[in-house]
Write a protein that binds this DNA or RNA. Sequence first.
DNA 1: CCTTGACCTTCCCCCAAGGGCAAGCACCAT
DNA 2: ATGGTGCTTGCCCTTGGGGGAAGGTCAAGG
Lengths: 136, 136
Amino acid sequence: MNIGEAAAQSGVSAKMIRHYETLGLVKPVRRANNYRSYTPQNVAVLRFIRHARDLAFPLAEVKQLLALWQDEGRESADVRRIALGHVEALEEKARSMQAVAASLRHLAEHCAGDGKPDCPILDDLAGSRQRMAAED
Amino acid sequence: MNIGEAAAQSGVSAKMIRHYETLGLVKPVRRANNYRSYTPQNVAVLRFIRHARDLAFPLAEVKQLLALWQDEGRESADVRRIALGHVEALEEKARSMQAVAASLRHLAEHCAGDGKPDCPILDDLAGSRQRMAAED
DNA sequence: CCTTGACCTTCCCCCAAGGGCAAGCACCAT
DNA sequence: ATGGTGCTTGCCCTTGGGGGAAGGTCAAGG
């Protein structure tokens, strides 16, 4: 099938299918007219990539997971290690974002939010006062 | 002072100082030799930007906050609105990352992680089974 | 006076993970 | 045979930076 059909069946845009090809994730055969031709197996690979991206795996890890998937002799320990490493990264990032959100929300709670110019948020950003302590 | 000194005093790399200038965030004067010259006020602006970036404000919002900071007639309500909007965005993003992490961790918990090839993580990515239900 | 080294300037390429557009070729149906 | 749709490549854009080349400037020291 052509790239448009593969895109429709996999849910991956034609643009990104070509991009994944340059990254070595999928290798369609070329027909005489230079069109890329995708097998149902290629489409399964594209779906795999999309699901992995939905789980926010970076493409470098998607590539590793794809290699393991296609390796009959894989060890599930390798898959699990990659997945848990990614889970740790996601959780760490989420924690850090929540900490930032919490401290900013704390600042905002002390801002009158009225028509006057005084604002502890701007004071904090300007560093005119020491950073607001964790415990008010 | 030159850009190197401004970078040292503000904690913003010379590279990014020039970048922020192209975005209109800071406007050093030019000397006869074409060198940028920074006042202590410029350095304060750079510090403001760095603090705002530490709170993960996108540069477009940093620009708005900077304009409000420099506006004597500002209303703190405007600052608060921007800050709370950003807090919501951060919390939403963090929640979504945690949800992804939780579902992936759930899959990993059902992976033997041994020398055998069977792995529910790969099964899920391949879509060979229906996605694992929320409640196992 | 001249050299050397540190600093500054502009310009370009790179990262992730895509989106979008344009010119040109291929294919299919009317 | 001709138009519309689809495929090809190539380029620019995004965010928030990092790195480096080529060339101009300045100050210190021989």
